[in-house]
């Protein structure tokens, strides 16, 4: 009987231990600080990646003193929260700050990549931000759906996108390459979770409130 307890107890303890350790390791990977020293040293490569580009999706003044680059995922709930804060701060601070959006679609979310493709395709018809907003505002609706694409198509239709052009763009390898390129740039910068924010080239700990976020930006003005 003792042997039986030892066997089954040992099995349960081993499995429980593995689950606890592996969940902690995975969690640490997510929260692991980026290679902050490398980024703070502002190596040339990092500065180049973070510098505003002509084809970036921007909100605000391109010549602003403060530039916020955000690597974000459309299906991550925290990213929705930060999208709404960015929008509010952009309206409040006007020309003082420039917000740049970059894609970082995580594999763990089923529809993230598709959402990125729809925003990029909408961007080709000058409606990136409208699609961006619709996708974030309605995140809870489509993220639980088995057919997120039909919801994205409703959004596209509601903002009067040319659907034939949209379909062509969605399949364009260049469009997918751009998303992939953003993702790879994020990896080079040490992005390990979303959203990841860089203010004037420095990766910051994500602010937990609007006031903290505002303060972080204002302190750099």
């Amino acid at each position: 009987m003792n042997k039986r307890y030892a066997l089954w107890g040992g099995l349960l303890a081993t499995m429980a231990l593995i689950i606890i350790v592996m969940v902690r390791v995975a969690d640490d990977d997510t929260n692991q600080a980026p290679a902050s020293a490398a980024i703070q040293n502002s190596g040339t490569a990092e500065s180049e990646i973070l510098a505003p580009r002509d084809n970036d999706w921007i909100k605000g003044n391109p010549d602003a003193d403060v530039v916020v680059v955000k690597y974000s995922d459309f299906q991550c709930p925290a990213c929705r929260f930060y999208a709404s804060m960015d929008d509010q701060l952009s309206q409040e601070m006007g020309d003082d700050v420039l917000f740049i959006f970059r894609h970082f679609p995580l594999s763990s979310f089923e529809h993230s990549n598709l959402a990125s493709r729809y925003t990029e395709a909408a961007g080709r018809q000058d409606k990136f931000w409208r699609m961006h907003d619709l996708i974030y505002i309605n995140q809870q609706r489509w993220s639980r759906s088995n057919d997120a694409e039909s919801i994205f198509r409703q959004f596209a239709d509601s903002i009067d996108l040319d659907m034939t052009q949209l379909d062509e763009d969605l399949e364009d390898p260049d469009l997918m390459a751009r998303i992939r390129s953003d993702y790879e740039d994020g990896q080079r910068l040490g992005v390990r979770a979303v959203p990841s924010l860089f203010i004037n080239g420095e990766m910051i700990q994500n602010p937990s409130s609007m006031d903290e976020y505002r303060e972080m930006i204002e302190s750099r003005l």
Binding site: T14, M15, I18, I19, V21, M22, V23, V25, A26, D27, D29, T30, N31, C76, L106, S107, S108, F109, Q187, V191, R192, A193, V194
Partner: peptide, 22 residues
Amino acid sequence: AVIGFADAVYLTASHYIGGLLT
């Protein structure tokens, strides 16, 4: 089986936590 279980649990946890794999 323990090695395989640990590997699969790590991948599953990473998926649901939403992080990147090391």
